[in-house]
């Protein structure tokens, strides 16, 4: 493992242990008396009409696709940010061209109403 990643790994292990310890400790401490009324909608809550695993409209999928596309853009900016000093204005110009082409696409999608909510 490269140097400097050990704290991140320790952080990840602690983050994983935290919910596990909390759930197990709560299970050991609390009394257990399950009955059916506990699982029903509370007070004025509305009873579920159908399964929550229904089908969603395809509009949400456009948002997901656009997210992935700009995700790819971000990963291209990452090496540029690391080498920013040595690339200088040449690198800035390159990335500007790269971003302008993508922003054109973003503006077009926005104008087209692809990001509008329903």
């Amino acid at each position: 493992m490269p140097e400097g990643y050990l704290p991140i790994f320790v952080f990840m292990v602690v983050a994983l242990l935290f919910p596990v310890v909390a759930i197990v400790a709560a299970k050991l401490v609390r009394p257990s008396s399950p009955f059916a009324t506990k699982l029903e909608a509370y007070e004025c809550g509305i009873k579920a009409a159908s399964s929550s695993r229904g089908r969603y409209t395809v509009r949400f999928y456009i948002v997901a696709i656009l997210f992935v596309i700009f995700d790819v853009e971000t990963i291209f900016l990452y090496p540029w940010a690391v080498r920013y000093q040595s690339l200088g204005w040449f690198g800035v110009a390159e990335v500007t061209v790269f971003l302008v082409i993508l922003v054109v696409g973003y503006v077009w999608a926005y104008k087209k109403g692809a990001l509008q909510w329903v």
Binding site: I62, I65, L66, I101, L102, V104, G105
Partner: peptide, 9 residues
């Protein structure tokens, strides 16, 4: 990537 945006929309 631009083509991908146009295509998906």
């Amino acid at each position: 990537l631009l083509v991908a945006i146009v295509g998906s929309v």
